[in-house]
Amino acid sequence: MIQANAYRDAMSYLTSAVNIVTTSSASGYHGFTASAVCSVTDTPPTLLVCMNKSSRSHVHFLESKILAVNVLAIQHEKISNVFASKLDSIERFKYGKWTKLETGAPILNDALVSFDCYIDKIQEIGTHTVFICPIIAINKNQQHQGLVYFNRNYHSVGQHEEMLL
């Protein structure tokens, strides 16, 4: 049997985009930093998002049945750490500028791209909940460097602006 620590160590070599996943519920805005986000299909456009069941905001995602995936750019390392911290939801949303699209889930204004989704299917697997999320709106910005997580550190990917000129 593979031990959890060995699995986590091995998974640290799987480069992942860094995302802030958000929702809006009767109690306000909630969100967390996530790397476990991926495309399911383009017909219909659908994302898969994994969330730890022990997260304080977990119940709000289950209740609201909506979420937004905000894909972070290189300048968002600090906000990634804020949404991964023990700060409460009110304090977290003091960082960044937020708006909303169709569902009302918070969209980070300067994210590389934001996907506005409703939660269609929910599956619990071990310590996590898997959300299957059809996309109903997209907001894309004109940035060229994304934030990724590899070997327990942040890195940038993409083109530097001076290379684009």
Rank of each mutant, 00 (worst) to 15 (best):
D9L: 14
D9G: 09
D9N: 15
D9R: 15
A10K: 02
M11I: 10
M11R: 09
M11G: 04
M11D: 02
S12Q: 00
S12V: 05
Y13G: 11
Y13L: 15
Y13T: 03
Y13P: 03
L14C: 10
L14P: 13
L14N: 13
L14T: 13
T15G: 10
S16A: 15
A17W: 01
A17F: 06
A17G: 14
A17S: 14
V18P: 08
V18A: 05
V18R: 01
V18T: 09
N19G: 02
N19W: 00
I20P: 07
I20F: 09
V21T: 10
V21A: 09
T22K: 02
T23S: 09
S24E: 15
S25T: 09
A26T: 12
S27V: 15
S27Y: 08
Y29P: 03
Y29D: 14
Y29N: 15
H30K: 09
H30A: 13
G31T: 04
G31L: 04
F32S: 03
T33Q: 08
A34H: 11
A34N: 12
A34G: 08
S35T: 15
S35L: 00
A36W: 14
A36E: 09
A36G: 02
V37L: 05
C38H: 08
C38R: 03
C38Y: 00
S39G: 01
S39F: 07
S39V: 00
S39C: 08
D42T: 10
D42Y: 01
T43N: 15
T43E: 13
T43F: 10
P44H: 11
P44A: 05
L47M: 13
L47D: 00
L47T: 05
C50R: 07
M51T: 07
M51K: 07
M51S: 06
N52Y: 06
N52C: 06
N52A: 13
S54A: 12
S54C: 10
S54Q: 11
S55G: 06
R56D: 12
H58K: 04
H60R: 07
F61H: 01
F61K: 01
L62R: 10
L62K: 08
L62D: 12
L62C: 13
S64C: 05
S64N: 04
I66A: 05
L67H: 00
L67I: 03
A68I: 07
A68N: 04
V69Y: 05
N70M: 03
V71L: 11
L72R: 04
A73I: 11
Q75V: 14
Q75A: 14
H76L: 05
H76R: 13
E77I: 13
K78F: 13
I79F: 07
S80M: 05
S80H: 02
N81G: 11
N81P: 12
V82I: 14
V82G: 01
F83T: 02
F83V: 09
F83Y: 01
S85L: 07
K86M: 07
L87K: 15
D88A: 08
D88S: 00
R92V: 02
R92C: 06
R92A: 03
K94P: 15
K94V: 12
Y95W: 07
Y95P: 11
K97S: 14
K97Q: 14
W98Y: 07
W98H: 05
T99C: 11
L101Y: 05
L101A: 12
T103R: 02
T103K: 01
T103M: 10
G104H: 08
G104N: 11
A105E: 06
A105V: 07
